[in-house]
Design a protein around this nucleic acid. Structure first.
Length: 584
RNA sequence: GCAGCCGUAGCUCAGCUGGAUAGAGCGCUGCCCUCCGAAGGCAGAGGUCGUAGGUUCGAAUCCUACCGGUUGCGCCA
């Protein structure tokens, strides 16, 4: 239960009652009423702007209206105090018994706490990674992979029906280059001295196994053959080999897609023609000449009639070309077909995770989605900014040799997948991210991965001690839900419970905003509350979690500790990070 | 030239879709701990939220114009 939603409903009920009593006008707009945690804890537990928002349409002064609402809200048994503050805020304080009940909620739900039905089972398609199948994944891909994967998990937790999808760009010129590069490796495998890899081909050693495999399969057959003869054989083989490698890279990062869609298959199935025919039938395609970009004029610019999509009708700045001068489709054209395909497969909400260098492409794609879905579908694009790899504060190149990029594999091997995943989510996707190989392994408060994992490990450490102290005690959440949780009355204990109770709201708002990084900040704050309580136990022995002479309160505290562990685990699960039970 | 994103404490960043006295970590200053509930704790200083207007009960948040940084700008994907 999102308790703020709950009180939002309570306020609605009070307003409805006042309308029925003739105190408020019929049909008054309550859509702007909010129930939120106040910024300052001293202001109470739940704060509403209802009196201020409804004042004008009701024709009653804010403070006066606040009195009216407050009198009704006081009747709620969970509410111990109602205060009117500032320009007309109504602040509610909630009973300790209410918080104890929320803690019991956490314990009964376990890791499922925070699961929401807000998404209503609405289908969402999220496309991420979509690296060209021409080589291993590098660090730049890692961020998009993690952001997409975490966003998918977050949306699932919030009740959406999520499809994780990967678009294979296997139709462009770059896969021909790949095939040529592999052909060279094939000749090499047959014993030819190939020398330097020529400019314009992919030089990486990772193509050698594919060359060897082709040599074994076909022998000399394609050695001196014309490109037209071997391309249809080598290209699909090379693409498949690269996709296998990419899948392995993704697996090392713990990322798994449910659907892989091939651009080439899309084109060969005639879906681009279908999509363009659809647009044409709606009068959205024409032959025209684009204005040259102002300012910097490209060298070889010449006005030329092109096949254009009327993107400007859907919010884009200029109409966009669909065909290249050689008559083949532009990437944009196939991408339109692809998004139409996703829509026809049932996706209403679509999310694409791209690198920030594709930022200029967002408006046209959104325009296209509007056009092909008749306004029913919506596309959100998450642009991931660069990751700066550092070591000890200095820029770091992990290259094995000059010119080689930092691979995702290298990164995962250096610090582990869980660290990579967590750190990638500690910034908004559209902000630059510094990834310091030393700092992310540091055991200190300014390393969020450590700090959050440490909270989880500490919680389990307490439970291990409890097991020694009272071997017969049942430490599962469902059992601890029956502990005398009302005995948790210290302000630091209550603050922690309130933090836990905020999890469902955080899940919903982060999902709605498509911002998984909020989970990282939440977990960090929750960890801080827990560590704070732990430290308080150092100064005040009576606040320790386990008191041998007071089993009852110890049980209640074990409930709190178990709840912290399960909410941390619940958050880490969204990130695809394994919670640790002890630090090493 | 146009478009997107960013601009918040000395540094790195949050800021819950318009709320109350703008927060955290690091760094700095001062106390405490070093009794294994180890991988520090507490407190303090530090801000014209890039600038200037506008919208309203109320703006870091929305709008406009500038300034600075960044990414991109017909036939690359």
């Amino acid at each position: 239960m999102n308790l703020f939603k709950h009180f939002r409903d309570e306020i609605d009920a009070v307003v409805a009652g006042l309308i029925a009593a003739g105190r408020l006008p019929v049909g008054i707009d309550t859509s702007k009423v909010t129930a939120e945690p106040p910024r300052e804890a001293e202001h109470g537990d739940v704060s509403t702007n209802a009196a201020m928002v409804l004042s004008k349409p009701a024709g009653i002064k804010p403070r006066e209206l606040a009195e009216l609402l407050a009198a009704q809200l006081k009747a709620n048994p969970a509410v111990t105090a109602v205060e009117i503050a500032g320009p007309g805020f109504i602040n509610l304080r909630l009973a300790e018994s209410f918080w104890a009940a929320r803690l019991a909620d956490v314990l009964r739900a376990g890791i499922a706490y925070g699961d929401s039905t807000a998404g209503g089972g609405r289908p969402v398609n999220i496309e991420y990674v979509s690296a060209n199948p021409t080589g291993p994944m590098h660090i730049g891909h890692a961020r998009g992979a993690v952001v997409g994967d975490a966003l998918a998990a977050l949306l699932e937790k919030a009740g959406f029906a999520v499809t994780r999808e990967y678009y294979i760009n296997d139709a462009g010129a770059q896969v021909d280059v790949l095939a040529r590069s592999v052909h060279l490796r094939y000749r090499e495998a047959l014993g030819e001295a190939i020398g330097e890899i020529p400019e314009g081909l992919y030089p990486g050693d990772y193509l050698k196994p594919a060359g060897t495999a082709l040599a074994q399969a076909h022998g000399e057959a394609f050695r001196a053959a014309a490109e037209a003869a071997w391309l249809p054989v080598f290209r699909p083989f090379a693409i498949a080999a690269m996709m296998d490698m990419i899948r392995e890279d993704l697996a090392a990062l713990g990322v798994r897609h449910a659907v892989f869609t091939s651009e080439r298959a899309l084109v060969e199935a005639g879906k681009v023609d279908d999509a363009l025919a659809f647009l044409d039938s709606h009068g959205l395609i024409y032959q025209g000449v684009l204005e040259p970009p102002k300012g910097k004029l490209p060298e070889d610019w010449e006005p030329r009639p092109q096949t254009l999509f009327r993107a400007t009708q859907f919010g884009d700045d200029v109409d966009r070309p669909l065909k290249k001068s050689d008559g083949s489709w532009t990437y944009f054209a196939t991408d339109i077909a692809y998004h139409l395909d996703k829509f026809r497969r049932g996706a209403l909400d679509m999310i694409d995770v791209w690198g920030a260098d594709h930022g200029g492409y967002v408006k046209r794609m959104q325009a296209a989605v509007k056009a092909i879905t008749g306004g029913q579908g919506a596309l959100d694009v998450k642009l991931c900014q660069m990751v700066n790899l550092l070591k000890g504060g200095q820029p770091f190149k992990m290259s094995k040799r000059a010119g080689t990029f930092v691979t995702l594999r290298d990164l995962v091997e250096a610090v582990g997948k869980d660290v990579v995943r967590f750190i990638m989510l500690t910034r908004k996707n559209d902000a630059h991210l510094d990834f310091d190989l030393d700092k992310v392994l540091e055991q200190s408060r300014d390393n969020p991965v450590f700090y959050v994992q440490y909270a989880h490990a500490r919680a389990h450490s307490v439970m291990r001690h409890a097991r020694e102290m009272w071997p017969e005690v049942e430490l599962e959440g469902t059992a601890l839900a029956g502990a005398p949780l009302g005995r948790l009355t210290d302000p630091a204990e209550l603050a922690l419970i309130k933090g836990l109770a905020g999890w469902p709201r955080l899940v919903e708002s982060a999902a709605e905003a498509h911002e998984p990084h909020r989970v990282a900040f939440y977990l960090y704050e929750l960890a801080a509350l827990f560590h704070g309580l732990w430290n308080k136990g150092k100064d005040e022995a009576r606040l320790r979690f386990l008191l041998e002479d007071d089993r009852e309160v110890s049980l209640a505290r074990l409930g709190l500790v178990r709840a912290v562990a399960s909410v941390v685990a619940s958050g880490l699960k969204i990130f695809g990070v394994e919670p640790v039970e002890e630090m090493r």
